[in-house]
Simulated scan of single mutants.
Amino acid sequence: MAVLWVEGFGLILPLPLFGVIPEATSVFVLPVVALMLFFVAALVSAFFVLPSVALGHWLAERRGSGRRGWWLVGAALLVLVFVGSLSLFVVASCEGGPVLGSWRDSLDWLLYASVFYCISIPAVLAAHNVVVRADAGYRVWSARQVLGYGSVALLVESLAVLWVLIVLG
C-alpha cells in the first residue's frame, strides 16, 4: 500500500505543471487528494495486489519453481482480467446498457487497464519481496522505509521524465 501511495503522489504532484489542476487550487486540493489516494491504495492493495501475490505464489508452487518474481507478472495479468471484467459488469449494470459500444470505448478501457497494470506491478513485486523475506527469516522493511526509499526512487523517476519532456519538447 505504501508503494502505491508513493506512486500516487508521484502522479498527483506534477499535475499543476501539465495544467490539469490550476496551481492556486492545488494547495487546497492536495490534502483531500492525499486522503482519497490513501483510500484507493488500500482498495487496490486488498483487491488486486494481495490476490496477485497469492495467485502468483500458488502457481509457482504448483509448477515446482519456487517463489519466482516472474510468476507474479502473469498472475497480476490474470487478476487484472478478472477485476476488469467485474468492473465492466458493474458499470454495465449501473448504466443499463453496453459499456463497450464502440472501438473507442474498448480502447479507453484497454488503456486504463494497461496504466493500472503498469502502476501496480511495483507494488505487487514489493509485496512479493516482503513475503519472500519474511519466509526466509529476514527483517522486513517498515512502511517508513518503503515510503522513504520509494520517494527517492520516485524523485529520480520524475526527474528522468521531466528531462525526457524537456528534450522532446
Rank of each mutant, 00 (worst) to 15 (best):
A46D: 07
M36C: 10
L50Y: 04
L43D: 05
G101C: 07
F89N: 12
S87G: 06
V140Y: 00
L43P: 03
P16Q: 15
L4N: 00
A60M: 08
W109K: 07
L125Q: 14
R139M: 08
G66R: 05
C94S: 13
S102K: 07
L55W: 03
V33Y: 13
Y112A: 04
L147F: 10
I12D: 01
W103Q: 11
L15Y: 03
A75H: 00
V99L: 12
P14I: 04
A127Q: 05
A136Y: 02
V20K: 08
V49T: 00
V124T: 08
L11P: 02
E23H: 15
L80E: 02
V124A: 05
S45M: 03
P22V: 14
L37H: 00
H128M: 09
L35M: 13
N129K: 12
G169L: 06
V167W: 10
G10N: 00
L88R: 10
G84N: 06
S85H: 09
P14R: 02
L162V: 08
L77N: 04
F47C: 06
H57S: 10
L88W: 01
W70C: 03
L35A: 12
I12K: 01
I12A: 03
A127F: 01
G66N: 06
A143D: 11
L13E: 08
V146E: 12
G64V: 14
E61P: 05
D135E: 14
A153F: 10
G56F: 05
P31K: 13
L162R: 04
I12L: 15
V29H: 11
W5H: 02
L162Q: 09
S26V: 15
G10F: 00
V146L: 09
R68A: 14
R67I: 10
V40Q: 04
R67F: 10
W141A: 10
R63D: 11
G69V: 07
L155S: 09
A153G: 10
L43V: 05
P16R: 11
S106F: 03
V161K: 09
S87K: 09
Y117Q: 11
V3Q: 13
S85Q: 14
E157H: 08
D135W: 07
A24W: 12
G148F: 08
W103Y: 09
V40I: 07
E95K: 12
G64P: 01
P51H: 06
Y149M: 09
G74H: 02
A24K: 13
I119E: 06
F48G: 00
L30C: 13
F38G: 14
L13D: 06
E23V: 15
V131D: 01
I166D: 04
L80S: 06
S120Q: 02
I21K: 13
V83I: 13
W5L: 11
L86F: 14
A160V: 12
L37W: 00
V20A: 12
L168A: 10
V90W: 13
V156S: 04
V44R: 01
L43W: 04
L88C: 08
